[in-house]
Design a protein around this nucleic acid. Structure first.
Lengths: 341, 341
DNA sequence: TATTAGCACTCACTGATATCGAGTGCTAAC
DNA sequence: GTTAGCACTCGATATCAGTGAGTGCTAATA
């Protein structure tokens, strides 16, 4: 059987209607809803076909139709390709400038949640291929050294090192010079074993300190695992009956609280390379516990290569149009605000 | 009317039974449950008295009794004063040692949540009366300075400062010396305006940098507002029908996600000076959105004056005995682990 | 005088039954 | 190919009687 234009129109009408009402939609509704000027009987026949093709189902005999994942997918694909062309009209979703990046991100998540009524998440940007910019070793007290490590993206890491006995100023200066001259501008991959050996040798009795600092450097740059995730509006989950039963809601809330699953999602979305919008419907979701939901993610990019993920989790009958629009807008704003700031 | 010992026994039995079952408890149940050897009729008379005194209520005529907030309060007071004496038996709630303090805290929240099946929170410790230990100003790039501020409790703060033009090494050294000699060992309260004026004067053209650093110092030490809150098991809320309706659960989940309300709670608990256990029942809660819950908090103390709050939020019919016991245990462990580490 | 047995009464809860109506598929007419 | 008409399905809602756990009150009892 073929999916002609009329069937497509009817499918779209079914999906739209279902998104609005959340109730199975019947033939009579569609007959009035569309401008096809067809009787409900005709629509019924078409709907029977659409069901056979797997785009819609009846929850039970004598009920209207509900889109399947496949139906949503088709709808979303069409919608997205239309959105491509269309210029995004300006909506009033606005971010204020914030001092700190993480405050800005928190705010973005919140604004998105309030505007869409879904649960939202945003990951801190991930600095790929990051290079060392600056190392500073200072004596904090007689037996404590502080290593401050700054990387290209201005990510700052602190690391306290316990020492046996106090180092004098001269030694400290020497160590600082040694490390900065040898390591600045390098990424972790470029710091290899021979280099480490040379450094340690030059450090003499203080080779353990160098080792310690290098470990901290490694951790600071290779910060895949400490991708920060900020969430907002997890309670919105409870607004959608199809997600609000104890079992499901519990899992979702848990995922939003623990954040590990969301980290996966963020990393996955980043890995996919696409800068655009990604939509996961039901089973397509990369996270087991979100498989009854739809997820829409976007990748924002603060500067070249400094990317993060922003996403929305909601019921499958999500207002995709609105979500995609709002997401794009926030994404653009994030970009702009940072460049200006 | 007087609350004699028998009434007290009956009240306790009612509360215990209700905690277990969550169902209104009737006179016959109590008659069997206690070893008072009284008929249900006698119990009924006593229960009528207890109701008149405001310790229990009937949800409706022809139902058993349920404790009121006042009833819970009496029960908890008795329980706590008994717990005082009793030596805590060793349970197997164990924390593993962690590298970083925040990992340890996260773990504590999680363990507590898993063990009790309630929602839990823990605040990072708050360093009161904190003194400055060390300031380091370094040049990161031509127009960026990095101020690293270390306080007595080894809390490290970083602050990036943009500069018009590059400072040479000598000036930098001078500024560092200036600030360290003048400020080390002082608390924010001790850094007054005349002192700031003198510093700025000595800094000459770089007075703006000094001002900038001082702001950062102030923020670093006076870190009331950035008390970190870690939560776990917020989804446990959904396990208790009396909290699981959309309205209430939404509010609770929201509180646990936004964390601001919990910060209030933590600060309040710290302010109360008590090192022991605090129990808030229903309306007693300092947070509006938690007024249908009970909250049990404890103050942990890593070192002298370095205190944080750990707390549990659950339904009013909470297993207070177990919660208090577990909380005490975790509290002790937190203390020990840190001292050893 | 305190306790208890007995009894009438209350009321949430359960399950059976009836009714309603939105929606379907099919057939026959247009 | 489209549509009107009709019988049929089945979830949702309302009604109602029956059940049982629980109460308060009264009168008998130790």
């Amino acid at each position: 059987m073929e999916l002609d234009e009329r069937k497509m129109t009817i499918l779209q009408a079914v999906v739209r209607n279902y998104l609005e009402t959340g109730e199975p939609v019947g033939s009579r509704t569609i007959s009035k809803y569309t401008d096809l000027n067809l009787s409900s009987a005709t629509i019924r026949n078409e709907m029977a076909d659409l069901e056979e093709m797997g785009y819609i189902v009846q929850p039970h005999t004598s009920a209207g139709r509900v889109p399947t994942d496949k139906g949503y997918r088709l709808y979303v694909n069409c919608m997205l390709s239309e959105k491509e062309k269309e210029v995004d009209e300006i909506k009033d979703v606005l971010l204020k400038k914030e001092e700190k990046l993480d405050d800005l991100l928190k705010q973005a998540a919140k604004v998105l949640a309030v505007n869409t009524n879904y649960a939202t998440m945003i990951s801190s940007p991930r600095y790929r291929e990051n290079k060392l910019k600056f190392i500073q070793l200072s004596r904090v007290s007689d037996n404590q050294l502080l290593a401050v490590i700054v990387t290209e993206g201005n990510v700052i890491k602190n690391h306290l090192i316990e020492t046996e006995d106090a180092l004098d100023d001269e030694t400290l200066l020497k160590l600082n010079l040694l490390m900065n001259t040898n390591l600045t501008g390098l990424s972790v991959e470029e710091i290899n074993l021979p280099m480490v050996a040379v450094l340690k040798k030059q450090a003499g009795v203080h080779s353990d300190i160098v080792g310690n600092v290098l470990d901290a450097v490694c951790e600071a740059i290779h910060s895949d695992e400490d991708l920060e995730i900020y969430t907002s509006g997890a309670n919105n989950i409870l607004k959608y009956p199809e997600l609000a039963d104890r079992e499901r809601a519990g899992e979702l809330i848990h995922a939003f609280e623990e954040k590990e699953p969301l980290t996966e999602l963020a990393l996955g979305s980043l890995a996919s390379q696409s800068t655009g919008i990604q939509v996961y419907i039901g089973d397509e979701a990369p996270i087991e516990s979100l498989k009854d939901c739809s997820i829409v993610t976007a990748t924002y990019e603060l500067e070249d290569g400094i990317k993060g993920t922003i996403g929305i989790v909601g019921p499958k009958r999500m207002d995709y149009d609105k979500v995609v629009g709002t997401l794009k807008q926030i994404k653009n704003q994030l970009d702009d605000l940072y460049k200006k700031g």
